[in-house]
C-alpha cells in the first residue's frame, strides 16, 4: 500500500477517480455508455472526445517545460490554425471536397509549425526568455487570427471537415484516436530514442549538457516547433467541433489549462524529468472537472471558484511537504492513547 501511494501517478489518478465517483453518486447515469447507430455514447465518451485539443497541447507543453521553457502562445496558435484552415475552405468554393479540406488542414498546421519554429528561434538562437518570447505571439496571435477572419466568425458546412471532431470510427470518436496517436508517437519519440534523455539533460542542467556535447540549441528549437505543430492540430479539432473559426474564443486560456495539466500530472515547472502519462491524467482531470460542473449543476457564478478549489486540493495532495505533514500527524499513536487514559481517569 505504501509503495502504491508513493507512486508518482497515485495522487493524480486518485483525484480523477474521486471526480468520477462524485459524478456517479450524484447521477449513476454518468457511467452509462450506450450504443447509438453503432456509435458509443455517454459522458465518458464525451470527455474523451472533448479532451483531444487539450491533450495535444498538453503533450507539447510537457516537452517544452522539460527543457525549462514554457509556451504561452498555444491558445493563439489554436485560433490562427482554425482561422487559416476555415478561411481557405470557405473561400475555395468546394467545401465538400476531400482535397480542399486536406489542403486547408495542411495550411493551418503548416502555419502553426512555422509559428512554433519562430518561438524556438527566439528562445534558442536569440536567447530570449521563453515566457517573454512566447508572450509575443500569445498577444499578437489573436490579432493575426482576427485579421485572417476579418473580425468575423467564419463558418463552413463541410462533411469531411466536420468528421474530424464529430465523426466515429469503430464506435469511438475520431478525436479520441487523434489524441491516442499523438500520445503514442510522443511516447515513442521520447522513450524509445535518445531524444527524451537529451531533453531531460538540457532541462536539468543546460551548461553541463552542453559540455557533455549535447546540441541543446537544436533540441530546444525542435521542441517549440513540435508544440506549435500540436497546437495547430488542436486548432483544427477545435474549429471542426463547431464548424466555425472564432478568433476571440478559440483556445482562450488553453495555455493555462495545459500548464495546469502538466503540473497536476507531476512534471516540475523547473524542467528536467517529465511524465507524459501524468499529463494525460492531468488533461482527463481537467476535462472531467468541466463535465462535473454541468453534472452537479454548479451555478455559473461560482464555477471558477469550484474549479479553483478542486485544483488547489489536487496540487496540495501532490506536494511532498503537505503529505509529510499529514503522515506525521497520524504517526504518534502513543500520545493519543495517553489522552484517552487521562479521559478515563477523569471520568472515574
Amino acid at each position: 500500500m505504501r509503495t502504491l501511494t508513493r507512486h508518482r501517478l497515485f495522487w493524480p489518478i486518485a483525484a480523477l477517480v474521486a471526480l468520477v465517483v462524485i459524478n456517479t453518486l450524484s447521477r449513476p447515469s454518468f457511467l452509462s455508455v450506450t450504443v447509438n447507430d453503432g456509435e458509443l455514447y455517454g459522458s465518458l465518451i464525451d470527455i474523451l472526445r472533448n479532451s483531444a485539443p487539450l491533450m495535444l497541447v498538453g503533450i507539447g507543453m510537457t516537452l517544452v517545460i522539460a527543457t525549462r521553457g514554457i509556451d504561452l502562445s498555444v491558445g493563439a496558435i489554436i485560433a490562427i490554425s482554425g482561422a487559416v484552415a476555415l478561411s481557405y475552405i470557405a473561400n475555395s468554393g468546394s467545401p465538400e471536397s476531400l482535397v480542399t479540406v486536406a489542403t486547408g488542414i495542411g495550411l493551418g498546421i503548416g502555419v502553426s509549425l512555422v509559428l512554433g519554429l519562430w518561438n524556438g528561434f527566439l528562445v534558442s538562437v536569440i536567447g530570449i526568455q521563453p515566457i517573454i518570447a512566447t508572450l509575443v505571439l500569445m498577444l499578437a496571435g489573436r490579432g493575426i487570427a482576427m485579421l485572417i477572419t476579418q473580425g468575423q466568425i467564419t463558418t463552413i458546412t463541410s462533411g469531411p471537415y466536420d468528421f474530424i471532431a464529430s465523426g466515429y470510427v469503430f464506435g469511438l470518436p475520431v478525436p479520441f484516436y487523434i489524441s491516442v496517436v499523438a500520445v503514442v508517437a510522443a511516447a515513442l519519440l521520447v522513450r524509445r530514442t535518445a531524444f527524451g534523455v537529451l531533453l531531460e539533460a538540457v532541462g536539468i542542467n543546460p551548461a553541463a549538457s552542453r559540455l557533455a556535447g549535447i546540441k541543446s540549441r537544436g533540441i530546444i528549437w525542435i521542441v517549440y516547433g513540435f508544440s506549435g505543430l500540436l497546437a495547430g492540430a488542436a486548432g483544427i479539432i477545435y474549429s471542426s467541433n463547431i464548424s466555425a473559426a472564432d478568433a476571440n474564443n478559440a483556445g482562450l486560456n488553453v495555455e493555462v489549462d495545459a500548464i495546469l495539466a502538466v503540473v497536476i500530472g507531476g512534471t516540475s515547472l523547473a524542467g528536467g524529468k517529465f511524465m507524459l502519462s501524468g499529463t494525460v491524467i492531468g488533461v482527463l482531470i481537467i476535462q472531467t472537472l468541466t463535465a462535473t460542473v454541468t453534472f452537479l449543476g454548479v451555478p455559473p457564478a461560482v464555477t471558477p471558484l469550484f474549479k479553483a478549489i478542486v485544483v488547489i486540493v489536487v496540487c496540495l495532495l501532490q506536494s511532498p511537504k503537505v503529505r509529510q505533514l499529514l503522515t506525521k500527524r497520524r504517526k504518534p499513536t502513543p500520545r493519543a492513547e495517553r489522552t484517552e487514559t487521562v479521559k478515563v481517569s477523569a471520568a472515574a
Binding site: D46, D246, V293, T294
Partner: peptide
C-alpha cells in the same frame, strides 16, 4: 430542469448541452 451559462459562444453552448443530455437524457 437546469440553467447554465454557455457564454454566448457555439463551443460552450455545445459542451454544456452535451452535459444536459447526459444528465437528463
Amino acid at each position: 430542469l437546469d440553467s447554465l451559462t454557455g457564454n454566448f459562444t457555439r463551443a460552450e453552448g455545445k459542451t454544456v448541452m452535451e452535459g444536459f443530455l447526459q444528465k437528463y437524457g
